[in-house]
Amino acid sequence: MSSVNAVSPPSGAQYEIRHGSQRAIVTEVGATLRHYSVEDADIIDGFGVEEWSPSGRGQVLAPWPNRLDRGQYRFEGRTGQAALDEPELQNAIHGLVRWLPWRSASKSAGEVALTCALHPQPGYPWRLDLEVRYRLDVTGLTVSFLARNASSVPAPFGIGFHPYLTAGAAIDDAVLRVPANRCLVMDDRGLPVGDEPVAGSDRDFTEPRSVGSMRLDTGYTDLVRGADGLARASVASPDKGRRVSLWADSLFRYLMVYTGDTIENVARRRRAIAIEPMTCPPNALRSGIGLLKLEPGQHVEGRWGVVPDWAAIGTLTP
């Protein structure tokens, strides 16, 4: 009698990396960051091994992040028509690679790299070769990506990432900082129609302040950066003495901040704050705003990371 193989997790193979008291798990499906903790304290609000990523948790969003109006666009004579996976708003959302299998390219105790070939299709008639690398060290978690246009013609490109950050407190009690001078103005389908200064508005988090009952599904831009070129946002829990920071390099010109008020699973609403580094705003394939143009054979690289700002893992400056 032949043996029956165990059923694999919905998110495929699980790649665990560690450094000291840090532990992260990345999945085969979507190169998704499923788990990240320090000394058993969750840094991201991820999902269980028997689940598939709900509400974009930890996913890679490429070749466009966020929403695309009716899934339709044209770029240098080519037309794309992506499936409407947000049908109630008639949008395509979060690109095409988050449910694809990714291959492990390299693996060590503290680092894993996964690759994916996005072949031409109706939603994106170009070929992209993608690599995402996750590394744990004394600075926390660093995520880097490389995207190469493997087509014979120029290709449009944008990318984002979707971690839900938690400092161990409910959102209403959390303190948020978003280093941005401007925010996007959205229509009722979540598509940007312009931008405006945050100064004097209830969306101004340039200085850390309590989230309270504020509902955010807001894109931020004109990011304020340090001398090292990095923009740093943070979520803090003063009562617990914890702060989790997200940093992003200069390729990431936008941050989407989402308090999870519309998550389908009510129990998961307002449990963590998604701070999503993005190279372009929603609908960039149609508007062209912030969209990268990759020539044949050209590649682009970027990086971002998460820093648990307490003394559990030593020096924490990226």
Rank of each mutant, 00 (worst) to 15 (best):
V4M: 08
V7E: 13
S8M: 15
P9N: 09
Q14H: 09
E16F: 10
I17Q: 07
H19P: 04
G20F: 12
S21I: 06
V26R: 02
T27P: 01
G30D: 01
S37G: 06
V38Q: 02
V38M: 09
D40F: 13
I43P: 06
I43T: 11
I44M: 01
E50P: 09
E51Q: 11
P54M: 01
S55C: 13
G56A: 10
V60F: 11
G71I: 08
Q72D: 11
Q72V: 13
E76I: 09
E76L: 13
G77R: 05
G80Q: 04
Q81F: 02
A82N: 00
E86A: 00
N91T: 01
A92P: 00
H94C: 06
H94Q: 07
G110H: 15
E111P: 01
V112R: 03
A113L: 08
L114A: 00
L114Q: 03
T115I: 07
A117R: 14
L118C: 10
G123V: 00
R127P: 10
R127A: 14
V132W: 00
V138E: 14
L141W: 12
T142L: 12
T142F: 04
A155D: 08
G160S: 13
L165A: 10
A167M: 02
V175E: 09
L176V: 06
V178D: 00
A180D: 02
A180L: 04
R182L: 06
M186N: 14
R189W: 02
V193T: 13
P197T: 14
V198Q: 11
S201D: 08
S201H: 12
D202K: 12
D204M: 11
E207L: 07
R209V: 10
R215Y: 06
V224G: 00
R225M: 08
A227R: 14
V235Y: 12
A236V: 05
D249C: 02
S250L: 11
L251S: 11
R253A: 14
Y254P: 05
G260E: 01
R270M: 04
I273N: 05
A274W: 08
I275Q: 03
I275N: 00
P277G: 04
N283G: 07
A284T: 10
R286T: 15
L291Y: 01
L291D: 04
L294V: 09
Q298A: 15
G302I: 04
R303G: 05
A311T: 12
A312E: 13
I313A: 13
